[in-house]
């Protein structure tokens, strides 16, 4: 029971991170119908930007841990959004309306490019970071085993909930959200009605990137170590989460993220750590076979 509870807490934390990244996938997929293959690398760039801010400001001796993290999150969001914008501009916009596979290949190319770019610019070695927020609550104690809920986990889950709420409101209530939904429904019609489709798509990429950057920051302070390659696996799992939840659906992305996080932690906790990635993928395959639209996705009626 205690062990279960601890795994649950860890799983929810990890799931929050996946969920935030999954939103980027789901939004881009919703609007242009493509997998943004380089989204995982935007997440990685977000994590690096956060690290740079923390180390930079820390070296100047500025700020408390809390303030530092807030500044780092904002910095990471800005940098990642800029990269998200550039990514769309370079690898997607010229190929919009063209052959589908072409956009996928250029996105894979972009992913390889970004990984190697960061490797060259920041070095191939892993980057450790001292724990910034320590301590937490002891929820339960039984013999040697304690169930911990760290402050960090609270912050991660809390931030995710806050961001999710804000973001859902943004999509539901503001004109940006309306334009996005309009583009999702029918891009041509939206353009005919005078909507700036290019701007809307750019914004979508930037918002997704900013959320991924927050996830990157969380990943950085939670695990305390990053390298240029983290984007690949985390990105794939987040995409799995988006598909699992039902691609195109924001609550679906969050739910999918949570599920993938939980599956992964419970699998490592109760079975084998080595095969945790296999578990996530196996679940994905099963979901796609038995419920291709994902858990919360709208069923797609085949038009004949």
């Amino acid at each position: 029971m205690e062990y279960f509870l601890q795994q649950l807490i860890n799983g929810v934390t990890l799931g929050s991170i996946y969920g935030l990244i999954a939103i980027g996938y789901t939004m881009v997929y919703g609007i242009i119908g493509m997998i943004n293959f380089a989204h995982g690398d935007i997440f990685m760039i977000g994590a690096f930007s956060g690290l740079i801010v923390i180390v930079g400001l820390g070296a100047l001796g500025l700020g408390s841990a809390g303030g530092l993290i807030v500044v780092a999150i904002i910095g990471a969001m800005i940098v990642a959004a800029a990269y998200g914008w550039a990514l769309e501009r370079i690898a997607y916009r010229p190929l919009r309306g063209s052959f589908r596979l072409a956009a996928l290949i250029s996105a894979i190319g972009m992913s390889i490019l970004l990984q190697n770019y960061v490797q060259l610019a920041q070095g191939a070695r892993v980057k450790p970071l001292q724990p910034m927020i320590e301590g937490g609550f002891v929820l339960m104690q039984k013999g040697d085993f304690t169930v911990n809920l760290s402050y960090l986990q609270i912050i991660i889950v809390g931030t995710t909930i806050a961001l999710m709420t804000g973001f859902s409101l943004l999509i539901a209530k503001t004109s940006i959200g309306r334009s996005q939904r309009a583009c999702e429904q029918d891009m041509k019609m939206a353009a005919l009605l005078g909507l700036d489709v290019n701007r809307t798509i750019s914004l979508t990429f930037m918002m997704g990137a900013a959320l991924a950057a927050v996830a990157g920051m969380m990943f950085l302070i939670y695990y305390g170590v990053i390298d240029f390659f983290i984007g690949f696996l985390v990105g794939i799992k987040a995409f799995t989460a988006a598909v699992l939840g039902g691609i195109g659906s924001l609550p679906g992305a969050m739910l999918g993220g949570l599920l993938i996080g939980l599956i992964e932690t419970f699998w490592s906790g109760y079975f084998t750590v080595e095969y945790k990635d296999v578990a996530a993928f196996a679940i994905l395959v099963l979901v796609l076979i038995f419920r291709p639209t994902g858990l919360l996705g709208r069923p797609e009626v085949e038009k004949v």
Partner: peptide
Amino acid sequence: GAAMVAIMV
């Protein structure tokens, strides 16, 4: 990576 992007575009 850059070549992949460039040729596709």
